[in-house]
Simulated scan of single mutants.
Amino acid sequence: MLKIGILALQGAVREHIRQIDELGCEAVPVKSVEDLKGLNGLVLPGGESTTMRKLLDRYALLEPIRALAAKGIPMFGTCAGLILLAKEIVGYDLPHLGLMDVVVERNSFGRQVDSFEVELSIEGVGNDIPAVFIRAPHIVATGDNVEILAKHEDRIVLARDGQFLGCSFHPELTEDSRIMKYFVEMVRESTLVESY
């Protein structure tokens, strides 16, 4: 059975666990370096990216997560998780994990009160997929090898860079698990024989 970790420092952790469990994988809440052992994939959920960075530093998780990435472990960042993955953040000198070849702008769809839900068509996933945007970032630029999977109002909101999947919105806050299923398939197809 695939073991998929969910960074469980803040954010919509339970909702991700539910979707991963429903797809027949073992969901592992990650709160320490020890929890990273044996994972086949890792989800970085939404929340508040600055707070999450402080917690990553406090629990000394930043470098071990980068080490997992170097071993080819697939990672999926939603909302704040996308910001954590990005190689560049508009208005900031340094990235957090700096793994995914994208430039991200924070809060580009407005504040909490401007939250909204739309339906998207997503390349390789399907049509009429509900997407919940809450203080969402968006991808303003991508590297040459990044595959753009979805846009909303001409802004990139879902993209894949090899083993990394980054999403502006919160697919876990809906009953539709097709995006998580796409990530599970990425994990399944990962040729990694030995996990962390």
Rank of each mutant, 00 (worst) to 15 (best):
T50P: 05
L56D: 10
V43T: 07
P95F: 09
L68M: 12
G47L: 02
L97W: 13
L94A: 14
P45E: 02
M75E: 15
G72Q: 08
G91N: 03
I83E: 15
G47W: 07
I83P: 13
E48V: 06
A67N: 14
K87R: 15
T50A: 08
A80P: 08
L62W: 06
M52V: 10
L82W: 02
G91Q: 02
G98F: 09
L68V: 01
A70T: 06
R58H: 03
L56C: 03
P64M: 03
L39A: 15
G46L: 01
R53Q: 14
L62F: 08
L97Y: 14
G46F: 00
Y59W: 14
L39Y: 14
E48F: 12
A70W: 00
G72P: 02
L94V: 11
N40C: 12
I89D: 00
A70E: 11
I73P: 04
E48A: 06
I65T: 07
G98K: 12
V102W: 09
T51G: 05
K87W: 00
V102R: 07
H96R: 10
P45N: 04
R53P: 00
L68R: 00
E48T: 02
D57F: 01
P95M: 08
V103K: 12
P45L: 01
L55Q: 01
I65P: 06
G77C: 04
H96F: 04
I65N: 07
S49Q: 08
I83Y: 09
S49E: 13
G47C: 06
G81D: 14
C79K: 09
H96I: 12
L84F: 09
I65L: 07
V90D: 09
L94T: 13
P45I: 01
P45S: 06
K87D: 09
A70P: 04
L85N: 07
V90P: 06
T78D: 04
G38T: 14
L61P: 06
E88G: 10
G72W: 12
V102D: 07
G98T: 11
M100F: 04
C79H: 11
L61M: 05
L56K: 01
L42F: 10
E48G: 07
L97E: 13
L62D: 12
R58W: 00
